[in-house]
Simulated scan of single mutants.
Amino acid sequence: MKRIKAVALAFLIIILAIQFLQPARNKNGQAVSKDFSKVFTVPGNVQGILKKSCFDCHSNQTEYPWYTYIQPVGWWMDSHIRKGKEELNFSEFGSYSKRRQMSKLKSIGESIENETMPLPSYTLIHKKARLSNEEKDLILNWVKNTRNSLSLKP
């Protein structure tokens, strides 16, 4: 019985200690000149959809829920955000080459059509991030029009 109490106490101390090891927050707060909305014409409704469903992991504008301040959940979220931004960062979209922008726009469309984004694990907790059919159509039309305008530019 003493051994179980000692292990439980050690576990509790470790859990409490790791709460002081918080990852850096992904919060810029400013739309920089490389932001996709500064590079392309983005209708307000499309930007709103992308903000609620994509920006937490794919921009420098993460909105952190309360549970991300509890470790190890915060570390797990930080990992998701870092990987998401490596794949696509709306805040840095303007710095991508034209070819990469075209590729990312294509990937956005495919991810929406295949329903691989937003991640089911994300929408499980963030119900507002789920995309309705109308929202999907708005994003897909914007992606198509933006890709067409990019392909016309020399």
Rank of each mutant, 00 (worst) to 15 (best):
K27N: 08
K27I: 11
N28H: 07
N28S: 09
N28C: 05
Q30M: 10
A31I: 09
A31T: 12
A31M: 11
A31F: 15
V32F: 11
V32W: 11
V32L: 09
S33Y: 09
S33C: 05
K34Y: 13
K34N: 10
D35M: 05
F36L: 10
F36C: 02
F36H: 11
S37M: 08
S37H: 10
K38R: 08
K38V: 06
K38G: 03
V39P: 00
T41Y: 14
V42W: 12
V42F: 14
P43D: 15
G44S: 14
G44A: 13
N45Y: 15
V46T: 12
V46G: 03
G48E: 06
G48Y: 10
I49E: 02
L50I: 15
L50M: 15
K52C: 13
K52R: 15
S53C: 10
C54K: 02
D56Y: 02
D56C: 03
D56H: 08
C57W: 03
H58A: 00
H58P: 01
S59Q: 01
S59L: 03
N60F: 02
N60E: 08
Q61M: 14
T62E: 07
T62W: 02
T62L: 04
T62A: 11
E63Y: 07
E63M: 09
E63A: 13
Y64K: 05
P65C: 07
P65L: 07
Y67S: 13
T68Y: 05
Y69I: 10
Y69E: 14
I70P: 05
I70K: 09
P72D: 04
P72T: 10
P72S: 05
V73E: 00
G74K: 04
G74C: 00
G74S: 04
W76Y: 14
W76I: 15
M77G: 00
D78V: 06
D78P: 04
D78Y: 08
D78Q: 10
S79E: 08
R82F: 09
K83N: 15
K83G: 09
G84P: 03
K85T: 10
E86W: 06
E86F: 10
E86M: 10
L88K: 02
L88N: 02
L88Q: 00
F90C: 04
